[in-house]
Structures are given as structure tokens and as C-alpha cells.
């Protein structure tokens, strides 16, 4: 599974520009279903199975886009100013490298600071691609790029860019490979543009019209000195109770907890005060549907070096498989 995560995270596909990652994923799953679609917003929708009388139509979403940068201006001296695709955190910028979809590489640095102890805002940063002047610069307004950072193993943990949310894509691919005899019609959605307000999941949910929805994403874990968080690395997937965008349906939380207990899978409960996921938009699609989310604990989310624990990833595969393999009874 590490190889798959490596392959997925080393692909460059920021929000709105997901074709590269879509093709990598399509190659992985093309043999698993005859019902594979790409919709108008670029979502890759893979449907498996038919809804039986004991089953439901369930949408499972993991987003395949990642945060990125977009060129807003090239200065006369060849330095490149940029805007963001999704939430870029300025503290992770200085010294980072970026790679653009046209192959150009660059390094990020900042204007001269007035106060060395303060983090400067994004507009005070620039990308240096080695150009001596604007004429000489291989980038123009609108070019998009992502962090340039390879995958590394750190013991049983791994670090890469875009583990948010390629790790969930990997989990979904694994589940699709292992799942058998599910009573449900399963619509696996590799969604686009999650980092810019879940645009992909919005339209996918409208078209699919599921009975039930589950989002897969990472959740920030800062189980490090001086910060109190309730979600730790290595203690299992987090069942989301709430984030700032939605309250999970309590019936879904109960179902997920009970399934985890029944299968002896360690899990945590997530009450998050920052961020949200594709679950937010699925829950309110059309007449609405019971919606929940599984989160994989992840440190340094939205940095070029996100870190997570492979045990949590494996446990998420096990839990999701268990959830989808049996009839669902909420209440």
C-alpha cells in the first residue's frame, strides 16, 4: 500500500486540474468495474454492485485534488508572485519548492521582514524559478503548481505532500479491491475541488442521489508537545462527530462505532474546530441524507511534509470494508 500512496502523492494535481491524478487512479481501478464515469467537474465515479433489497445506494468520497499555487504576476526581475488554490499556510512557504504542471520548478522565499519573529502573509512571498527577468521567466499568469516533495518512509509512519487526501484515495482503492458480496450499490467518488469548497462532491451527490454518504479525509493531529488535541497518530481512524462545516448524523456515528467495536478496530472520535470535508455538501444534497466521515489522523496538514501512521491507514481500510460489506441499519 505504501507504493500506491507514493505513486499518488508524487502526482501533481491541484484543485481544478485533476486530470493527472485521475489517470493514475483510473489505471489502478479500471479492471474493478464496468461502470466508470468522469462527470462535468472531473469527478471520477466508479460504481460497483447493484442495490439489493437489503442494501442502499452509498456514496463514498475521497478527494483527489491537492492544494496548490497559481501565478498572479511575474516581476521585472523574474520573481513570481502567486495566489493560492485551497488553503496555503504561510508558515510552510519559505524554503519550500514548487513544481508547475508545465514542469517548471521553483523555490519560495519572502520579502525582507520588518520583524523576524512574525510570519509574513502569502502576498509577501515569491517563487524564484531562476529567471533573471520577466522576459526570461518560463511562467506566466495562471500557471498552476504544487509543492515539490517526494514520499519518504519514517519507520511505520510516512511523510509526503498531498497525503491530504491521496491517502484516502489509496484507502478507497484498497477497499474496492477487497470488497465482496456487498448488498449495496457503492458509488466510489474520487472527487475534485474539495480544497475549494467541495465543488466536485456537490455535483456528484446531486447526480448519484445516494441514500447514505461517507467522506474519507485526513484530520489534523497535533499530538505534540504543548498542544492538546484529541486525535492522536497511531490510535486508529477517527469517526467524525463534527467539524466546522457539519454535524455527522448521530446514527452514522453510532453505526461506525459499533462496527469498529464488533471488528476489534481501534478508533477515535473527532470533534474538530477547524476545517470541513466533502461530507458537508453531501449531507445537504437534494432532500438530504444521513452522512458521516472517517478521518485519518495526520500531522502538519497542508504542509509539504504531512505525516501519518500506516497502521491508521490499514485500520481505515478494514473499518470501511466492514462498514460496506453488511446491511446497514441506522437507529
Amino acid at each position: 500500500m505504501k507504493n500506491l500512496i507514493k505513486k499518488l502523492t508524487e502526482t501533481s494535481s491541484p484543485s481544478g486540474y485533476e486530470s493527472a491524478i485521475r489517470e493514475v487512479i483510473r489505471a489502478e481501478i479500471s479492471s474493478l468495474s464496468t461502470n466508470i464515469k468522469v462527470d462535468a467537474l472531473g469527478n471520477l465515479i466508479v460504481t460497483m454492485g447493484k442495490k439489493t433489497d437489503k442494501g442502499l445506494r452509498i456514496m463514498i468520497a475521497a478527494h483527489m485534488d491537492e492544494i496548490g499555487v497559481i501565478v498572479s504576476h511575474v516581476e521585472k526581475n523574474g520573481l513570481v508572485r502567486f495566489s493560492n488554490l485551497g488553503t496555503i499556510l504561510p508558515q510552510y512557504l519559505v524554503g519550500s519548492r514548487v513544481v508547475f504542471l508545465n514542469g517548471v520548478r521553483g523555490v519560495i522565499n519572502q520579502d525582507r521582514p520588518d520583524d523576524l519573529h512574525k510570519i509574513m502573509t502569502q502576498d509577501k512571498h515569491f517563487i524564484d524559478v531562476g529567471a533573471a527577468s520577466d522576459k526570461d521567466c518560463p511562467l506566466k499568469i495562471g500557471d498552476v503548481g504544487v509543492f515539490d516533495r517526494g514520499f519518504v518512509e519514517l519507520g511505520k509512519r510516512v511523510s509526503a505532500k498531498s497525503l491530504d487526501d491521496r491517502v484516502s484515495c489509496a484507502v478507497m482503492i484498497e477497499v474496492m479491491k477487497t470488497i465482496k458480496n456487498s448488498p449495496h450499490e457503492l458509488a466510489f467518488v474520487f472527487s475534485t475541488q474539495e480544497e475549494v469548497q467541495s465543488k466536485g462532491a456537490t455535483t456528484a451527490a446531486y447526480e448519484i442521489e445516494p441514500d447514505l454518504a461517507i467522506a474519507l479525509d485526513v484530520t489534523p493531529s497535533l499530538d505534540i508537545v504543548g498542544v492538546k488535541m484529541q486525535v492522536d497518530l497511531g490510535k486508529g481512524p477517527a469517526i467524525k462527530v463534527r467539524d466546522v462545516g457539519m454535524l455527522s448524523d448521530p446514527r452514522m456515528v453510532r453505526w461506525m462505532e459499533e462496527t469498529a467495536k464488533k471488528n476489534n478496530i481501534a478508533y477515535q472520535l473527532e470533534v474538530l474546530d477547524i476545517g470541513t470535508t466533502d461530507a458537508k455538501v453531501m449531507q445537504i444534497s437534494k432532500a438530504g441524507m444521513p452522512t458521516g466521515a472517517l478521518s485519518i489522523p495526520c500531522r502538519y496538514v497542508h504542509s509539504p511534509s504531512e505525516v501519518l501512521d500506516m497502521d491508521d491507514v490499514q485500520a481505515t481500510v478494514t473499518l470501511l470494508t466492514a462498514l460496506l460489506n453488511s446491511p446497514v441499519s441506522l437507529e
Binding site: 445537504i284 432532500a287 438530504g288
Partner: peptide, 16 residues
């Protein structure tokens, strides 16, 4: 349901 958080209930009820 859920007016105090995201007006989730009114949106979906009206749609249906």
C-alpha cells in the same frame, strides 16, 4: 433541523 449550524434542515426539507 440544524438551523443553528448550517440551515441544513430547511434547505433539504424545502427541496423535497
Amino acid at each position: 433541523v440544524q438551523e443553528e449550524v448550517f440551515a441544513v434542515g430547511a434547505a433539504t426539507s424545502t427541496f423535497s
